[in-house]
């Protein structure tokens, strides 16, 4: 339910503004980072579970969560290392699968 509503917000942005999909991607991740930074997003995750973590805002909040805990552990340097560390699983998977996909797949025309 919550995930669906986040998607509706995205859809309205696509249709009503001239933002490209790449910019919307950025917007959602950034929004997640900000909300995550203030601890608001965690409440949403507690409420909606994967409905909040699966959308890109969840990815953003994960980044900020990583930063905060890393800063607490290892000081200021954590601001630079923490984000990627927390999201490492997702990013590495995407890159890994990207390479695999480019090995096995060939671009194909859209049918419509």
């Amino acid at each position: 339910m919550c995930g669906g509503i986040i998607c509706i917000i995205g859809q309205i942005l696509i249709d009503k503004t001239k933002l490209t999909s790449a910019k919307i991607l950025v917007l959602f991740v950034t929004l997640g980072v900000i909300l995550g930074g203030f601890g608001i997003y965690q409440k949403l995750i507690d409420f909606a579970g994967c409905g909040a973590t699966v959308p890109l805002t969840g990815f953003g909040s994960l980044l900020s969560k990583g930063v905060i805990s890393e800063v607490q552990e290892s000081g200021l340097i954590g601001a630079f290392t923490g984000g990627i560390k927390a999201a490492a699983g997702g990013i590495a998977a995407a890159i890994f699968f990207g390479y695999i996909a480019s090995l096995v797949s060939k671009p194909k025309i859209k049918k419509q």
Partner: peptide, 11 residues
């Protein structure tokens, strides 16, 4: 525009 496999909508 974008790569062919990108799942975007065309206005």
């Amino acid at each position: 525009r974008f790569p062919l496999e990108l799942g975007n909508q065309r206005p």
